[in-house]
Design a binder for these strands. Sequence first.
DNA 1: GCTTATTATATCGATGGTCGATATATAGAG
DNA 2: CTCTATATATCGACCATCGATATAATAAGC
Lengths: 116, 116
Amino acid sequence: MAGFERLEAQNLTKNFNEALILAILARGEMHGYQIALEMEERSGGLFRFNHGTLYPILHKLEKEKTIAGVWRPEGPKKKRKLYTLTRRGRRYLDWQASEWRRFMETFLSIIEEGES
Amino acid sequence: MAGFERLEAQNLTKNFNEALILAILARGEMHGYQIALEMEERSGGLFRFNHGTLYPILHKLEKEKTIAGVWRPEGPKKKRKLYTLTRRGRRYLDWQASEWRRFMETFLSIIEEGES
DNA sequence: GCTTATTATATCGATGGTCGATATATAGAG
DNA sequence: CTCTATATATCGACCATCGATATAATAAGC
């Protein structure tokens, strides 16, 4: 699909993290900290993000316009950055879903052939 | 399960590569170059190993006794190193299969919730 | 009112594993 | 006798994640 780097063994984790973040954001606008909480809850604690991992990814996704971030004031001094999926982000997410399905089908078929 | 490091986002690629190698070896003894060819064939070209990736992994798996390697002479001067799964390797492979299934089930359920 | 925990974003150095290149050598094809 | 395929091995560059650290506002507990 146009514009997206293919899913390869070498970038599994990167694509995995990005796809999860986009899927969480697909529900509606959300700030970083909230994404991390949602992720932990929805995966039953299986997937967790260090914020040292999460924030750089958000910045990168924003930079390449896969998501859009807007600062919103929250109280007199506090502010939060709310992210939403762009149209590109939506396409990227759908593409990721199909890539992962194909990838895992092939992977599991090889693994299960070897299983005892 | 005892002795095996859990499957986490941070070590996806590593576990992915190891699981594939073990699954290929589950068919019977094989040398490194042969593993790479089998992999490409069985995945329809989707999974490929650089030998700069493959050999270090084989050495590591051998060192931790997940696989066992034996040098066998092949002609007057040539020799090849043939690997087989150990009992530990067998257990590791079965464990990997169940970990990956659980992991991907959760992952895809989150992704598909976001899909349009 | 004071202290602590929680919410919230951000950056940075260390770590670790893959990639691609390079090296070396034998066997087989033409 | 040259070229290609087979076969193993190592090394530096690269890159993304991890865990720690920093900063600050707000809510809760007492």
